[in-house]
C-alpha cells in the first residue's frame, strides 16, 4: 500500500477511485430503494450518444455529456410521477434511445468509436488533475447534501404522498435528487467509465442493505464498501497487472455476493 502511494501516478488513480466511491456509494442506497438501478446504464448510453454527437460536430465532449446526462435525469424525475407508465419502462426507452443514437452518430463521426469505448470501459488511469479536484468538490458537496437533506430525501422516496400532506415540496426534492445524481454520474463516467459508474451506483447500496437493518447505517456501510472496493481494486490491479476499473467492479460484485450470503444466513437464523 505504502509503495502504491509513493507512485504519483497510482496515487492519482487511488484518489479518483476513492472520490467516485465517496460520491456514488451512499447514493446507491437510494438508487436501490427507489428501484432505479438501470438509470445508471441508461444514462451511460445517453452520455455515449452525447460524446458521439460532440465528436461529430467537433465540440468539447464533456459539457455536452454533462448537459444531456443532467437533462435525462431531470426528465426522469418529471416523468416519475406518471400514472400511466412505471418508471422502469421510461428508463428502458432512455437506454434504447441512447444506444441507438450512439450507434447512428458513431457511424458518421471520425474517431468516434475510440471515444465511445473510452466512455463505456473507462479510463481511470488517465483522470486529469483538474477533473480530480472537480470530483473532490462535487462528490464532497454531494455527501454533505445527502446528510443535510436526509429527511427530505427519505420522505420524497419512501412516502411522497405523506410528504405532500406535510407541506414538503416533494417534486422539487425529487428534481434536486435526480439533478444531483445527473451531475455525479456525468463526472464519474468521464473519470472512470460507464461500467464502474453503474456498478458503484448499485453494488454498495445493495450490499449494505443486505448487511444492516437500519437505513442510517446503510449509508455508512455503503460508503465503506465503496471505498474498500476502490482501494482494494487499485491495489489488486497494481499487484497483478489487471485493468483497474474492471478489478474494482469485480471486487464490488464479490463483496455483494458475500453480503447477500450473510444477509440470507441472518434471515434464516
Amino acid at each position: 500500500m505504502i509503495e502504491l502511494i509513493q507512485v504519483p501516478f497510482m496515487r492519482h488513480i487511488l484518489l479518483a477511485g476513492v472520490f467516485v466511491a465517496a460520491g456514488l456509494a451512499p447514493l446507491s442506497v437510494y438508487v436501490v430503494l427507489r428501484r432505479i438501478v438501470f438509470v445508471g446504464a441508461a444514462v451511460a448510453e445517453v452520455a455515449s450518444a452525447a460524446v458521439a454527437l460532440a465528436v461529430l460536430f467537433q465540440l468539447a465532449p464533456f459539457p455536452i455529456a454533462l448537459a444531456l446526462t443532467v437533462t435525462s435525469f431531470l426528465a426522469l424525475s418529471r416523468l416519475a410521477d406518471s400514472q400511466r407508465l412505471p418508471l422502469e419502462s421510461l428508463i428502458g426507452m432512455l437506454y434504447a434511445g441512447g444506444a441507438a443514437a450512439s450507434v447512428l452518430l458513431i457511424t458518421k463521426a471520425p474517431r468516434g468509436e475510440a471515444n465511445i469505448l473510452n466512455i463505456l470501459f473507462g479510463n481511470i488511469l488517465t483522470v486529469p488533475a483538474t477533473l480530480l479536484w472537480a470530483m473532490a468538490g462535487v462528490f464532497g458537496a454531494l455527501l454533505v447534501f445527502q446528510y443535510v437533506a436526509a429527511k427530505e430525501l427519505l420522505i420524497s422516496a419512501y412516502d411522497p404522498d405523506m410528504g405532500r400532506t406535510l407541506g414538503i415540496p416533494v417534486r422539487a426534492w425529487n428534481m434536486i435528487f435526480y439533478g444531483a445524481m445527473g451531475v455525479a454520474v456525468a463526472i464519474a463516467i468521464r473519470a472512470v467509465g460507464a461500467l464502474l459508474t453503474f456498478t458503484m451506483l448499485v453494488a454498495p447500496g445493495a450490499s449494505a442493505l443486505c448487511l444492516t437493518g437500519r437505513l442510517n447505517r446503510a449509508f455508512l456501510v455503503a460508503l465503506a464498501l465503496g471505498v474498500v472496493s476502490a482501494v482494494g481494486g487499485v491495489m489488486l490491479s497494481y499487484q497483478f497487472d489487471l485493468p483497474t476499473g474492471s478489478t474494482i467492479v469485480g471486487l464490488l460484485v464479490v463483496l455483494f455476493a458475500i453480503s447477500y450470503g450473510i444477509g440470507q444466513l441472518r434471515s434464516a437464523a
Binding site: L33, K151, I155, L215
Partner: peptide, 15 residues
Amino acid sequence: YPLTALEVALMGRFG
C-alpha cells in the same frame, strides 16, 4: 426500506 417503527413515526414531525 430498513426503518424502525420509531423512524416511521418520526416522519410525522418532518413538516
